[in-house]
Design a protein around this nucleic acid. Structure first.
Lengths: 217, 217
DNA sequence: GAGTGTGAAGCAGTTCACAGCG
DNA sequence: CGCTGTGAACTGCTTCACACTC
């Protein structure tokens, strides 16, 4: 009988906490590889640039998953975090846009290692259609909705120019896809029941540039 | 207790606000190109997926920059945001790591267009050293500190494997660089006076996967 | 009238501090 | 004794509501 069979709570977990879960999982996998079997909140905190109290509060969302006086079991916590993050199964991912960013994302190994399999690639450049990215044939955007449904796509990564992104994502939503990761430099709009993350490479860089400017004067 | 300090207005701008400034600036530039000369908070809010009150509160950090009954002057606000974000001058950027991510970042046009010029590229793969990325010669990591100083680097982008990232960034800090954008999958540690943003491509994807899992049950 | 600027209220995430358990 | 789990205090961002101004 597993000690960590506690309910995985139905309560909503704060977004900031979920993001830290990703980091904790990464560290736990490292610890696991090093043969470390227990880890205290302070150790995870040091590694993740946060505080021990923060780690404990975060993990308390998972129920009582640690042992007082001992810390957290590395394999058990790894398992719980993988489950909560939805990494127990694999996800079928479509990549829209096989340009520079799209290609780099396609080739990014950690995605695949985590179970995000890019099984569909769409690009409307006639020179690219028909050629291959890895072992996936690039298709054009005709019949996008049918393709997404036939391929059983769970999640779409948008890496197309800004001006075409919204109309494309509307069709993605119409096809019933419930998760979109957007790298195009626009804030996409989707219905409430679709999860969306807008990633902007410029925002981070510009916030650094702001910080540099502040400290200069 | 010093009463004088209480009266100094804290001109620190919240991080969340600075990040939205980047987005507002992008929209303002679009509006400018469309020949729109005034824009109300509600219009910016619609475009950015936020609320009118949020936009006004954000912009109030810049002083009184709008006109009641009219909105904000597109060219004037564009100018102010560019200044606050430190985009009036150009920045000299070094890229550490010329792998897939590094190359994609190097070739990402918007960086250059915003004044982030990658003038130095470092990679320790002997096959790459000496070859070119665009018009920049790839150098090895020997004498990194001197190179960063000679090239007058303001900001470093880290795109190397996780295991070498921290030791490399320690040398970057020692060279006096005050801003680091990290794409390596570790949380880097730097002194308080160095601005750091850790960007993790997996965190976004995993938070989507969490959302998918939530909504499934 | 239309739309900004801003105190005040509300809310969410973080930190504290300590009781409780192994 | 060490370290978790957690209410309570705190901090800081967001939303509200309305006085104010063009």
């Amino acid at each position: 009988m597993n000690t960590f069979t506690n309910r995985i709570p139905t309560n909503r977990i704060p977004d900031a906490t979920v993001r830290r879960f990703s980091l904790y999982l990464r560290y736990l996998e490292d610890f696991g590889r090093s043969g470390i079997s227990n880890v205290a909140s302070g150790v995870l905190a040091d590694r993740g640039g946060t505080t021990a109290a923060q780690v404990r509060k975060d993990l308390s969302h998972l129920g009582s998953v640690g042992k007082r006086g001992l810390g957290y079991s590395v394999p058990a916590l790894t398992r719980v975090l993988r489950t909560v993050l939805g990494l127990d199964s694999t996800w079928r991912v479509a990549l829209l846009g096989a340009g520079r960013i799209g290609t780099a994302l396609f080739e990014y190994e950690p995605f695949r290692r985590r179970g995000f399999n890019i099984v569909t690639v769409i690009d409307n450049d006639p020179c690219k259609v028909g050629s291959r990215l890895g072992d996936v044939r690039i298709r054009d955007e005709k019949g996008l909705q049918c393709v997404l449904q036939e391929d059983g796509i769970d999640l779409v990564i948008v890496a197309v120019p800004a001006r075409v992104a919204q109309s494309l994502v509307d069709r993605v939503v119409a096809a019933g896809v419930k998760a979109v990761l957007n790298y195009a430099p626009v804030q996409l709009r989707v219905p409430d029941d679709v999860a969306l993350r807008n990633v902007s490479m410029l925002v981070e860089l510009e916030s650094l540039s702001h910080a540099l400017t502040r400290s200069r004067q």
